[in-house]
Nucleic acid binder design. Structure first.
Lengths: 224, 224
DNA sequence: ATCTTGTGTTAGCGTCGCCAACACCACAGG
DNA sequence: CCTGTGGTGTTGGCGACGCTAACACAAGAT
């Protein structure tokens, strides 16, 4: 038999899989945990305190599942898969997710900062690779806010936002913005403009031919 | 003296300016509305029903404030100001906003669809102007989800998301994605690439000079 | 005059979160 | 050996909650 505190947490975690935090009564928790009624107050200082701990435990699972994601050589792609695993977690644990990201009053789960710290790690790699056009802090806030918004709308209004296409659109939008790449060939357009401009200048000044400049630029882009 | 139903709604609207929906007790509502305790059940079928009506009234105010926004000749700019007024409404009515966009259980406010319908109207003008690269329905869902996400994070974690910069980043990201324009000069970059390409072709084929093409393109862009 | 509709009043139900008080038991230190 | 001492279970109850039944009353419609 484990300790009372762990039994209460296990029971609550089990109940929140099928009920919202409000719908769960402390009495039902105590019954399932085989614990007296005053135990929750003793251990957690009340229902809100218990729920805050449950939320933090949820964040641990959340972060653990994210840490399992492979860490490829493309940090931006890693951010993309992190987004998708975020959405998956929300859809698989709707009530827990709402408890984590829409807390009512104090105390609020403290682990949101850890989630952002994890995201900031990947974004740091993005910046080191020169893929960021924004400060990692702002980029992280933007990504997290958009990600949470998509998930909450999918949970609250599934008939309006049930489609995963919305998630992909917003994800690519924010990622494109943060990395400075336009989404469909926009970055290529900028690069083309730069190449052509350089080629033009060279050609007009007579130093090189347009063909040489374009060929060189193409070979450079194929290398990277 | 107005009707009991209206007094209850007015009292609730007044209370929700400083308290969350959970924190408000039906008894406090009845006291302020000078109404007997059973009146809420009679009129709204219970507290949840009352809150759903309050949320729908909130949506009416929300939409009314949006309809006051000027309707310029640039529909994309109109979407942008709609985003900003959305954020302003959320910050000015935090508890009401959370009631509107994070309902717990049934019945859910039905007016979210009206909000999306209003957004779809502007997006229809965008599409008519050839500014959309996505279906208006998907674009509307993406914009609304991202907008709500930013607001909810600002309300739930003000110490992490208190900055309006996040809102602007996400707004420009989604709007850029939806309109197919790169965010900062990306559209200009694409246009430059097209102009230069045309100029190059013309110059290489000997039909026109580079200068003529560029000057013509510049004068065209200055006209529009 | 009667009926309907909306409203106010009283009393009470069952549940909720929480707490005080006490009893029990294992385990370390004297 | 006792003796705290801390963690745990039990009982009973407090005040507040949402909600409902039952009844009374007034005004307008029929």
């Amino acid at each position: 038999m484990s300790t009372a505190r762990e039994r209460i947490l296990a029971a609550t975690t089990e109940l929140i899989a099928s009920q919202s935090a409000e719908e769960i009564s402390t009495r039902s928790i105590c019954a399932k945990a085989q614990v007296g009624a005053p135990e929750i107050s003793r251990q957690f200082g009340g229902k809100r305190g218990l729920m805050a701990v449950v939320a933090d435990r949820g964040f641990e699972r959340f972060l653990a599942s994210k840490r399992k994601n492979p860490r490829t050589e493309d940090p931006v792609a890693d951010v993309r898969t992190a987004w998708d695993s975020h959405v998956r977690f929300a859809l698989e644990n709707p009530h827990l997710y709402r408890l984590m990201f829409t807390p009512d009053g104090e105390p609020k789960p403290q682990a949101v900062k850890e989630a952002q710290a994890l995201l900031l790690g990947v974004l740091g790699r993005c910046e080191a690779a020169g893929r960021l056009v924004l400060a990692p802090a702002v980029a992280g806030q933007a990504i997290l806010a958009a990600n949470v918004g998509v998930c909450l709308m999918m949970l609250s209004f599934p008939e309006l936002f049930g489609d995963l296409a919305v998630s992909e659109v917003v994800r690519d939008a924010v990622l494109g913005k943060v990395t400075g790449q336009a989404q469909e060939g926009g970055g290529a357009g900028q690069a083309a403009a730069a190449v052509l401009a350089r080629a033009l200048v060279g050609a007009l000044s007579g130093t090189v031919t347009v063909e040489d400049e374009v060929v060189q630029a193409l070979s450079r882009s194929l290398d990277s």
